[in-house]
């Protein structure tokens, strides 16, 4: 059986919130290392990969592999009933029909309990190759959100160009064009505002802004976001969580001319 308790429901609420508009039905794959999720959006342009490691929970217990087939819209409805600071416990039997969720507000001695019906989801898993990316950009997640939102007003796509001088986001549309360039920036007193560019070779790729703005719904999960680019492979956008857990998005580049 699965039993996984989070000190605050916040993490799980924000993670589900971040992906619910991209994927609808997906399996939460539970085993002794934690809770993982991999799902593509309907049009097979983007892939979500989430890993909540066992260490993120206390306690965490999962004796055997359990796939929890969940409709994220339904899960969102249930999670709305959880206070951000409530403790959240997920429980399921070995071959479950339901996912049991318990929210506890210890200060108020209030306990709420929900059973969410599960579904059989036949989902194909994709193998994501280990990639040595040409460019890895770490930047404030709020800045990335601002850039994608601002450029969305200009065009439906953005070209991300990483060079030794910095990273440039540029869009060209009917009304004109716009660009934002960030240079490496490491303020000692404000680590959350760091912009770091690791570059093995310059790279420029074009992506759909519709998807990138969608990924930015994960912004509350982490102060920093990592963008990993290589020529002709999907962009990886990573929101790192405590203890090595993560929420990653992969986006296929635009191709041809």
């Amino acid at each position: 059986m699965l039993e996984a308790r989070l000190d605050t429901a916040n993490l799980f609420k924000s993670a589900v919130d971040a992906i619910k508009d991209l994927v609808q039905d997906c399996n939460f794959d539970c085993n002794d290392s934690g809770i993982a999720l991999q799902a593509m959006d309907n049009s097979h342009v983007a892939l979500v990969s989430m890993m909540l490691k066992a260490e993120a929970f206390s306690p965490f217990r999962c004796d055997r592999n359990i796939a929890l087939g969940v409709n994220l819209t339904s899960l969102t409805k249930v999670l709305r009933a959880a206070g951000r600071d409530d403790t959240l416990t997920l429980k399921a039997e070995d071959a479950p029909d339901v996912l049991n969720l318990v929210f506890e507000a210890t200060a108020q001695d209030r306990i709420s309990e929900y059973d969410l019906k599960l579904m059989d989801i036949d989902q194909e898993h994709l193998g994501i190759p280990d990639t040595e990316y040409a460019a890895t950009i770490s930047m404030p997640s709020a800045e990335f959100k601002r850039i994608t939102t601002d450029l969305m007003a200009m065009s439906e796509s953005v070209t991300i160009e990483a060079t030794k001088d910095g990273v440039k986001f540029s869009s060209t549309g009917d009304i004109g064009n716009g660009s934002i360039t960030l240079r490496q920036h490491t303020p000692v007193d404000k680590p959350n505002e760091t912009v770091e560019i690791e570059l093995s070779e310059p790279v420029a790729l074009t992506f759909s802004l519709k998807y990138l703005t969608n990924f930015c719904k994960a912004q509350p999960l982490s102060n920093q976001v990592k963008l990993c680019l290589s020529a002709e492979v999907p962009l990886m956008v990573e929101y790192g969580l405590e203890g090595g857990s993560y929420l990653r998005f992969y986006l296929a580049p635009k191709i041809g001319d």
């Binding site: 593509m40 097979h44 342009v45 983007a46 892939l47 194909e124 898993h125 994709l126 193998g127 994501i128 190759p129 796509s157 074009t206 759909s208 492979v233 999907p234 992969y250 986006l251 296929a252 580049p253 635009k254 191709i255 041809g256 001319d257």
Partner: peptide, 14 residues
């Protein structure tokens, strides 16, 4: 204009 690639052409099925 550039076309949108599919994630499935980059990542293979397990």
């Amino acid at each position: 204009a550039k076309g949108q690639g599919s994630i499935m052409s980059f990542f293979s099925k397990k």
